[in-house]
């Protein structure tokens, strides 16, 4: 067990390092001179040289890389060259909005998928199973960037119940959460249904019936618990998909999270800020995935090493 944790930790650290290296390389793949790209062709030479120095682009790659790595280890993600603000601070300011949205989407997905999946799993060919299938179909077919505007059209414009965009009270988060959570609820509904149907085939269920338990007792005391463990893990691993979905959902609803920050920084060619944001999103993903792996191993020690 200890060995597994250690191995998983080393793997996560390696991934973190590799992502950092990739992100550092990004500024070097910009065709042409990145500093001129940022400031524009007509910028005075003095400004160009100043920014070049600030970004460490006047030095060879390995020196800039080591300086950046040193900065990262000391919590320094450089400054935005447009606002001059510390990138880490900007990201931390926006972080709660994204987490809030991700959690709301998770809750939405659970509220939809668990009842439908569980009832659909137990009652084959019932209206519940049809409902479960329909939700899966809708969630799979409409990607975020199509579903978001359609929801705004119906529930903010035609029937004005929810605000069009921005962050605020509960009413603000409902449409973005549905948009971001739809794909996940489709996936989870299918998984819950499958997991329950698989569990029902196992011999211990037959034994429980033979013992004289009612269907309700069998389900509540035995099947539900066993069939939901794998689903919970899947949910954790889907968190990363939520994070990348948040980039689009936040753009649609002007939700002030790190996804919107990333797109804005790319549009304004604020490369240092874009790099810092990409790092932040990837780091979150790696940490969450590792955490879920740990929890799962604790819950179910039969799993030795999670191999994707």
């Amino acid at each position: 067990m200890k060995k597994y944790f250690l191995k998983r930790m080393v793997l996560s650290l390696l991934s973190l390092w590799a992502i950092f290296t990739f992100v550092s390389l990004l500024i070097r793949i910009i065709p042409g001179d990145p500093v001129v790209m940022m400031l524009g062709e007509n910028a005075p030479q003095a400004n160009i040289e100043k920014l070049r120095k600030e970004l460490g682009l006047d030095k060879p790659f390995y020196i800039q890389y080591l300086n950046d790595l040193n900065g990262l280890l000391h919590g320094d993600l450089k400054k935005s060259w447009i606002t001059g603000r510390d990138n880490l601070k900007t990201i931390l300011d926006r972080y709660p909005a994204t987490i809030e949205l991700a959690i709301a989407s998770m809750i939405f997905a659970i509220l939809i998928s668990f009842p439908l999946g569980i009832l659909g799993g137990f009652k084959k060919n019932s209206i519940w199973e049809k409902g479960a299938t329909s939700i899966s179909v809708l969630g799979i077919s409409f990607p975020h960037f199509a579903l978001g505007p359609i929801l705004i059209l119906f529930f903010s414009i035609l029937i004005p119940i929810f605000p069009v965009s921005g962050r605020g009270g509960i009413s603000h988060i409902i449409l973005p959460a549905i948009t971001l959570g739809s794909g996940l609820s489709a996936y989870l509904t299918k998984m819950v249904k499958k997991s329950i149907q698989n569990e029902l085939k196992k011999p211990y269920v037959l034994y429980a019936y033979a013992k004289g338990l009612t269907k309700f007792q069998v389900v509540k005391n035995h099947v539900l618990k066993n069939s939901l463990i794998p689903v919970v893990t899947l949910m954790g691993l889907q968190f990363g998909i939520l994070l990348s979905g948040a980039i689009i959902t936040e753009t649609i609803f002007s939700w002030p999270g790190i996804g919107q920050l990333l797109i804005r920084s790319i549009q304004s060619r604020d490369y240092p800020l874009a790099q810092a944001t990409i790092l932040a999103i990837s780091f979150t993903y790696i940490v969450v995935t590792a955490f879920v792996d740990f929890i799962y191993t604790l819950l179910d020690p039969r799993i030795k090493f999670y191999d994707r």
Binding site: I19, I278, R308
Partner: peptide, 13 residues
């Protein structure tokens, strides 16, 4: 390493 970046973030980057 490639799987350590979520979804389309790598492509966006």
């Amino acid at each position: 390493v490639f799987l350590a970046m979520p979804g389309i973030l790598l492509a966006i980057a």
